[in-house]
Simulated scan of single mutants.
Amino acid sequence: MISRLTRRTALLGGACAFLSGCAGKFRSYDGPAVTRLRLFKKRRLLVVEGRERTLRTYPIGLGFAPVGHKQFEGDGRTPEGSYVIDRRNPDSKFHLSIGISYPNTADVAYAAAAGRHPGSDIFIHGGPRRGVDPTDVRDWTAGCIAVTDRQIEAIYAMVRDGTPIEIYA
């Protein structure tokens, strides 16, 4: 029969292992402040910039219809234009995610004029499943920007809400 001490030790060890796995996705960042993001769709590149220099660059995956500006819900396109990072999702089904302020006023007006919905919930997020590099599985999202889980951990730590993001064709 297993002693109470052995059982408690096993349960405590299991709980610690579980919690350390959860906490592992949240990193800290003490480098220069991020002043803006620039995303180049054709080059599949996200550039993280500070006041004086480029801080990091990341390869990206896009929406399943990568050419052109997102106009309507379900079109599979990634937006183009000027937006800001406006929210964070630590419980994203894609590991971690940071939200982009799409749709803006112009996006809403364009879609409304066509009698359509512009779509919403555009994020920079991690991969679809563990062990798959989302930048190798190009253009699989519904309009979001995909990076690896390790990359979104770094981006999530570096980028603050309110950071401007320019998305270029």
Rank of each mutant, 00 (worst) to 15 (best):
M1R: 08
I2H: 06
R8D: 14
T9G: 14
C16M: 10
C16L: 15
A17P: 00
L19I: 07
S20M: 06
G21V: 03
C22K: 08
A23T: 01
G24I: 00
K25E: 02
K25C: 02
K25P: 03
F26I: 02
P32C: 05
A33Q: 15
V34S: 04
T35A: 09
T35L: 10
T35H: 09
L37Q: 10
F40L: 11
F40Q: 07
F40D: 14
K41Q: 04
K41L: 06
R44C: 01
L46T: 03
V47Y: 06
V48N: 12
G50W: 08
G50Y: 10
R51C: 07
R51P: 05
E52Y: 13
R53N: 13
Y58R: 02
I60S: 00
L62T: 02
L62R: 01
G63H: 05
H69D: 15
K70S: 03
Q71F: 01
F72N: 02
G74V: 09
G76E: 04
R77I: 03
T78F: 08
T78Q: 05
P79H: 03
V84L: 13
I85C: 11
R87A: 15
R87P: 00
R88P: 03
N89H: 00
P90A: 11
P90S: 07
I100D: 02
S101N: 04
Y102L: 04
P103N: 05
Y110D: 07
Y110A: 14
A111M: 07
A113F: 00
A113W: 00
G115L: 02
G119A: 07
S120V: 02
H125A: 12
R129H: 12
R130P: 11
G131F: 12
G131S: 13
G131I: 09
D133K: 12
P134D: 07
T135Y: 07
R138I: 10
R138A: 14
D139E: 09
W140L: 09
W140P: 06
A142Q: 14
C144L: 06
I145Y: 05
V147G: 10
V147D: 09
T148H: 08
D149R: 13
R150W: 08
I155N: 11
I155Q: 12
M158Q: 13
M158N: 08
T163Q: 08
P164S: 04
P164F: 08
P164W: 05
I167K: 02
